[in-house]
Structure formats: structure tokens, C-alpha cells
């Protein structure tokens, strides 16, 4: 069974841990081609929402639909269409860049692993460092490698948690343009960040979260002013 979708729909998503409410009644829908930002201060529920979108965390209430499929039913074929780049980057420092990519490509069931890994190394601009241990890489290099790692299996939905943290100016711009290109290829990019300025040129739309609730849904240009307004209104 293969699963594909060009739309993700959340209805009434909520998640609590004991008495702590992490996410409360969040509904939205988004389509392939969008770069959707999840914005809000720390503890707003961005990571919880991303974790639910990755199918690794079950919502306490509501559901998330991937096109015609639901997370709890589709299982492994749905995971095949998800790419995840967390804050911790998911790379083994004891392995080389190439070994990391080969491992994850095999795990993802990618065919023609060597060719795919070679292309990924080119995309990450790390051909010359391919056989060096990741432990010796700078944050920027790791970030590029980790992004290609998340894209190895050509996912439809790409989830990123704070991807801009620790990047210098040029790296930020490069990542931003890469994400825009990925969305242009028909992917849905969802990224969580607490730093609005860094995400400036990338987002086509922003969901503003605060205390686990969706407080604003801003499309197109000018979302930055709207975000500021939304936050000051709240506090």
C-alpha cells in the first residue's frame, strides 16, 4: 500500500500530560506548496503539534488527516511520506557524513542508495567532507547534512523544529531558499520557530500559538506585523 496526500487537516487537536495542557483544540488545514510556520514563545505547543504531525505522539482529542489517511490507521506507509528534522538533528557523531546518509537511506528503504547519497552530499555541499566524522562538523554543516538526511526518501511533508537556531547569516539564507524550493517542488513544509526575524522570508503562512491554543492564522506577506500584533494583544 502506498500513501500520498497533498493536504493536511487538523480538527480539534488537543494533548495534555496529566494536568498540563500542551495543546488545546487546534484546527487548521494546509496544502502542499506551503511553507507553514508554527510561531510562538517557548512552551506554546509548537513542538507538541510537530510531534503529533510526525505520528509519534497521539493527540488526546481531535484528529489529524493526511489527505484521505489518518495517522493511527496508515502506519508505516504514511511514515514513508514524512521527513523529520528535529532540533537535535538526528545524526550519529561517531559516523561519517556518508555513513549517516547510507544508514538512513537503507532504513527508509530507498532504492539505489549510493546514487541517492551522492546526490544528497552534493545538495548539502559536503562532497569534500563526505568521509569525515560528523563529530568534527560545525553546526551549519550538521544542519545541512541533517536536512538532506530528512529528505532522502523524498517525503511529502517535511517537519522542522527550530531549524534556524545556531546558524550564521549565510547559512540561514541558504536554508531559507532551500525550503522555498522544496515547497515549490510540491512539498508541504511545516516549521516551528520562536524567532520571527530568522523565518522572515520563508513562510507563506504562519500559525501563531500561545499557551497551547491557536491564536492567529496569518497568510501571505505582512504576517510579521500581524504576529507582533497578535502577541501584544494576548499579553
Amino acid at each position: 500500500m502506498s500513501v500520498d496526500f497533498d493536504e493536511v487537516r487538523a480538527s480539534g487537536l488537543g494533548r495534555h500530560f496529566g494536568r498540563r495542557r500542551a495543546l488545546s483544540n487546534v484546527s487548521f488545514s494546509c496544502r502542499a506548496g506551503e511553507v507553514l510556520g508554527l510561531l510562538g514563545p517557548n512552551g506554546a505547543g509548537k513542538s507538541t503539534l510537530l510531534a503529533i504531525a510526525s505520528t509519534l505522539l497521539r493527540p488526546s482529542t481531535g484528529h489529524l488527516q493526511y489527505g484521505a489517511h489518518e495517522a493511527s490507521r496508515a502506519g508505516a506507509p504514511l511514515r514513508q511520506r514524512l521527513g523529520w528534522l528535529g532540533h537535535d538533528l538526528q545524526l550519529y557523531p561517531e559516523l561519517t557524513a556518508r555513513e549517516n546518509l547510507i544508514f538512513f537511506a537503507r532504513l527508509q528503504g530507498v532504492t539505489a542508495v549510493d546514487a541517492r547519497v551522492a546526490r544528497a552530499l552534493t545538495d548539502a555541499r559536503l562532497e569534500s567532507r563526505a568521509d569525515d566524522l560528523v563529530s568534527g562538523f560545525s553546526r551549519g554543516m550538521r544542519q545541512r547534512l541533517a536536512l538532506e538526511r530528512a529528505l532522502l526518501h523524498d517525503p511529502r511533508l517535511l517537519l522542522l523544529d527550530e531549524p534556524f537556531t545556531g546558524l550564521d547569516g549565510p547559512s540561514t539564507i541558504a536554508l531559507a531558499s532551500r525550503l522555498t524550493r522544496l515547497a515549490g517542488e510540491g512539498r508541504l513544509v511545516m516549521l516551528a520557530t520562536h524567532d520571527v526575524d530568522l523565518a522572515d522570508d520563508v513562510l507563506t503562512r504562519a500559525l501563531v500559538l500561545r499557551d497551547g491554543r491557536l491564536v492567529d492564522d496569518i497568510s501571505g506577506r505582512g504576517w510579521r506585523q500581524a504576529y507582533r500584533a497578535a502577541l501584544s494583544r494576548e499579553s
Binding site: T55, A76, Q90, L107
Partner: peptide
Amino acid sequence: YTDTLRALLLAPA
């Protein structure tokens, strides 16, 4: 350490 367990669990296997 780098949250690779999550990447393992997200594999379609």
C-alpha cells in the same frame, strides 16, 4: 544524544 531514536521510529519499517 541527538534524538536519533525518533528518526529510527519514523522509518517505514
